[in-house]
Simulated assay, not measured.
Amino acid sequence: MGGAHGGAGEFGHMIVDAHGPECSCKNRGCLEGLASGCAIKRDAQQLVKSGKGRHMLFIAGSVEKIDARVVGKAAIDGDKEAQAVLANAGRYLGIAIANVANLLNPGAFIIGGGVACGVGDLILDPARHEAYQRTYPPYRAFLKIIPAALRSQSGILGAAAFAMDQLESENDKLGTD
């Protein structure tokens, strides 16, 4: 992590809907609260409680057991309601991507994590569409949104790399003092 206080890169806490649900950080409308595995689980459970989402309920066995993996499985099976839950999350991801694209104009967005890697284009296509619509027009032709090569392992491997960097930094300090 970089930044003045070690918190740069908190992509998940970018506000993408000012009237969205409360996030774990106590803000409203964070990407994490709208497009994470927990958000997908919440939205799917609400859908099932409203009397819809029968295929997700069938797969899970009970409302409480519905999670992002169940939604992904149902979506891959062709369930339109599960696909809509993922598409909604993808649109919020696309809004966040467009914000970063407009601010920093990076060469590519590499999306990792269990949900995105597990369902691929079912979440990435809506993200691409939304990001393309909201990105500053001169940048659109260069907008790339691709799945992480490390798939769902990217988070844990990134954490391990960060820990190794921290350990190396501490060892350097001890060696120079």
Score class of each variant (00 low, 15 high):
G113D: 01
V115A: 05
V115E: 04
V115R: 07
A116M: 04
V119M: 01
V119W: 04
V119T: 03
G120D: 07
G120L: 02
G120R: 15
G120H: 10
G120M: 04
D121H: 15
D121M: 11
L122P: 02
L122F: 08
L124N: 09
D125T: 11
D125R: 10
D125Y: 08
P126T: 05
P126E: 01
A127Q: 02
R128Y: 07
R128I: 07
H129G: 02
H129W: 14
H129N: 13
E130T: 15
A131F: 09
A131S: 09
A131E: 04
Y132S: 06
Q133W: 09
Q133Y: 08
R134T: 01
T135P: 01
T135M: 02
Y136F: 15
Y136C: 10
P137E: 01
P137N: 02
P138L: 03
Y139E: 01
Y139C: 07
R140Y: 02
R140M: 01
A141H: 11
A141G: 13
L143G: 03
L143M: 06
K144W: 04
K144L: 02
I146A: 07
P147H: 07
P147Q: 03
P147F: 02
A148Q: 07
A148T: 06
A149S: 15
A149L: 14
A149E: 15
A149F: 09
R151T: 14
R151N: 09
S152P: 00
Q153P: 00
Q153S: 12
Q153C: 06
G155N: 14
G155E: 09
G155H: 10
I156T: 13
I156F: 09
G158H: 13
A159P: 00
A160K: 11
A161D: 07
A161P: 00
A161E: 08
F162P: 00
F162R: 12
A163P: 00
M164A: 15
M164V: 13
D165G: 07
D165I: 14
Q166M: 14
Q166V: 12
L167V: 12
L167A: 14
E168L: 13
